[in-house]
Amino acid sequence: EKIKSDFFELLSNHHLDSQSRWSKVKDKVESDPRYKAVDSSSMREDLFKQYIEKIAKNLDSE
């Protein structure tokens, strides 16, 4: 859970929106230790998708 929250924090530093693509974001964040803390690339992508869904819901509710 800490790894997930750290990863979300990392993503939040990059001002993403619901149109952001993992392939582009990954290049910007892959040197960060919070990125490396997530064991697998599929898990990183899953967390990215969860984060994008979360910010999309937040935008819808505003």
Rank of each mutant, 00 (worst) to 15 (best):
F7R: 00
S20I: 05
E30Y: 06
S18L: 09
I55W: 06
E1G: 06
V29E: 02
P33E: 08
S20E: 07
S40Q: 07
A56Y: 08
K28G: 07
A37K: 07
S31M: 10
E1V: 05
L47M: 08
R44I: 02
E62C: 08
S18N: 11
S12R: 10
K36R: 11
N58C: 08
F48W: 05
R34H: 00
E45H: 08
D46C: 11
S18A: 13
D27I: 15
A37S: 05
Q50K: 09
K54R: 12
S5P: 02
E45R: 07
K26H: 05
E62H: 09
D27C: 13
R21Y: 07
S40H: 05
H15A: 10
S42T: 13
K4L: 05
E45Y: 08
S20T: 06
E53P: 03
V29Y: 08
E1W: 05
E62M: 09
P33I: 05
Y51S: 03
K28C: 12
K4A: 07
S18P: 12
K54Y: 08
A37M: 06
M43R: 09
E62D: 14
R44F: 01
D46E: 13
K36Q: 09
K36T: 11
D17I: 02
L10C: 06
H15N: 14
E45W: 02
K36N: 08
E62S: 14
S18H: 12
L59Y: 14
I52R: 07
D6R: 03
P33D: 09
Q19R: 10
S31T: 14
D46Q: 12
K49P: 00
V29D: 01
Y51H: 05
E45C: 05
P33Q: 07
S40F: 02
L10Q: 00
S18C: 07
M43N: 09
K24G: 11
S40C: 13
A56E: 14
I52F: 06
D60C: 08
I3Y: 04
E45M: 06
A37I: 06
L47H: 02
L10E: 01
S61I: 11
I55M: 14
I55N: 12
S41F: 06
S20F: 03
S31P: 06
K36S: 07
I3A: 07
K2H: 07
S18G: 12
A56W: 05
D32E: 02
F48H: 03
E1N: 15
D17Q: 02
H14S: 07
V25M: 06
V29Q: 00
S40R: 05
K57T: 12
D27P: 15
K28V: 11
R34P: 00
M43E: 11
S41V: 10
E45L: 06
L16M: 10
R34A: 07
H14D: 03
E62T: 14
K49G: 08
K54P: 03
K24M: 12
Y35F: 15
W22C: 00
Y51D: 04
D39W: 06
V29W: 03
E62A: 14
K28R: 09
F48K: 04
E45D: 04
K54I: 11
K2L: 04
E62L: 06
E53S: 14
A37Q: 07
K57V: 10
H15W: 05
I52C: 08
R44T: 03
M43Y: 07
R21G: 08
Q50S: 10
D39T: 15
E1I: 08
S61F: 14
E62R: 10
F8G: 02
D32N: 01
R34T: 02
L11G: 01
E9P: 00
A56D: 15
K57H: 07
D46W: 08
S18D: 14
D6Y: 02
D46S: 12
D17Y: 03
S20N: 04
Y35H: 03
Q19T: 15
V29I: 15
S61Q: 13
D17F: 03
K26M: 07
E30A: 13
D17A: 03
K57R: 11
S40L: 04
E30N: 13
S42C: 13
L59F: 15
K36I: 13
E53K: 13
S18M: 13
L10N: 00
K57D: 11
A37F: 01
P33W: 11
E53H: 06
L47N: 01
L59Q: 12
S31V: 07
K28F: 09
L16E: 03
Q19S: 13
E9M: 05
H14V: 09
A56I: 09
S40E: 09
H15Q: 14
H15E: 11
S12M: 09
D6H: 04
A56N: 15
I3L: 07
L10P: 00
E30F: 05
K24A: 15
L59R: 12
N13C: 12
E53G: 08
V25A: 05
P33G: 05
V25H: 05
K2M: 04
S12L: 04
A37H: 03
N13Y: 06
Y35G: 05
P33S: 10
D32L: 00
R34W: 00
L59M: 13
D27A: 15
S23F: 11
E30I: 05
S12Q: 09
F48T: 03
D17W: 02
D46G: 07
K57M: 13
H15M: 08
D39I: 11
S42W: 08
A37E: 03
I52H: 05
